[in-house]
Simulated assay, not measured.
Amino acid sequence: MQRLIIALPGNEAFADQLAAACGAERGHLETRRFPDGESYVRLHSDVAGRAVDLVCTLARPDEQLAMLLFTADCARELGATEVNLVAPYLAYMRQDQRFNPGEAVSSLTFARVLSAHFDALLTVDPHLHRYPALSSLYTIPTATLHSAPLLADWIAANVERPLVVGPDGESEQWASAIASRIGAPCAVLRKTRHGDREVEIEQTDLGGYRDHTPVLVDDIASSGRTLLVAARQMLAQGLRRPECVVVHALLADEAHAALRQAFARVTSTDAVAHPSNRIALAPLFAQALLEGRRDPAA
């Protein structure tokens, strides 16, 4: 029996592509909000005896979580054999320890909630900073997908003589993998963060790459401050106007506008719906679903 792909509101385009890529049926979900703000969910597709994959990128999780959990429980109560979460962007990975006394470690709480309602979780490039793997906090099987090959192929096809640039030490291995795949040089900057919106990047001499096009690659762009500081540093050294390629574009309109002024082009995957989307992830997720791919056990 075909898989059933169901989109939470705002995820319809991604779900359509995913269903087409893996030969699955697209289910229909009715949602609305009552006058007091509570969520209403109704499944219009027969889920009994079927594997159900709910598509919901979690860029704004607080607005979506109740509706997502209601849908998952409803599918299970109506007889779905399994209920999986396809979350191209996985939220609440930032607060992975108690940095100050009394803080909530929200990544653990969020993981417990999702683990209690789904049979498996599929996501791409989660922000694993202090966790070695998703299995460190999720108790259900997970599939951690990687977009670096897709980013590398897009850069090779669209940028002349690229210089792949990672904005900080965390990005070194990732940026190197992208550069290696397309035979491009790679440089990694050194960043110091002084707050949510204040960053400092150590001066790095890139003057030897003036005949290349710098391509800043990053997993997440939210305020865009790191990318802006890096772009201005490269322009000050006489390099070509850089390109920006990110996985998760969490950019508000004003942040996107600022980046567009600094970069020749801003490009992202469609993990989060955004005007900069140019790299499709549905084939990556479809392959993982069809193969039943899961991360190795910890």
Rank of each mutant, 00 (worst) to 15 (best):
N277K: 01
L65P: 09
Y131V: 01
L65R: 07
L137F: 10
D119G: 14
L8E: 13
D53P: 02
A175C: 04
H212M: 04
V246F: 03
R112N: 12
P283K: 02
L128N: 13
A120L: 04
L8N: 10
T204R: 13
V47N: 07
N158F: 00
T269R: 14
Q261S: 10
L78P: 03
A157D: 08
V217G: 06
T204K: 12
M93I: 05
L121W: 01
M1G: 15
N277S: 13
L121Q: 08
C244T: 01
A288Q: 08
E243T: 00
R193E: 08
D153F: 01
E12V: 02
M67Q: 15
L289D: 08
A91W: 04
E254T: 00
V272D: 15
D218C: 03
R181N: 02
L85V: 06
R3T: 00
A177N: 09
D119Q: 11
L227Y: 00
I5Y: 10
E243L: 05
E202P: 02
R240I: 00
L128V: 05
L290Q: 13
G79D: 15
E30P: 03
S135I: 00
H194E: 04
V55Y: 05
P101S: 07
V246Q: 09
G183Y: 03
R232T: 02
L281A: 05
L239C: 04
E103N: 14
R76Y: 03
D196S: 14
A184H: 09
C56K: 09
D218H: 06
N100F: 13
A20R: 12
D253E: 14
N84D: 11
E170Y: 00
G207V: 09
L259N: 10
S135N: 12
Y131S: 07
T123Y: 03
S171Y: 00
I5F: 08
E25G: 12
I279P: 09
T267V: 15
R241G: 03
M1H: 15
M1T: 14
V266A: 09
A187V: 06
L90K: 08
R130Y: 11
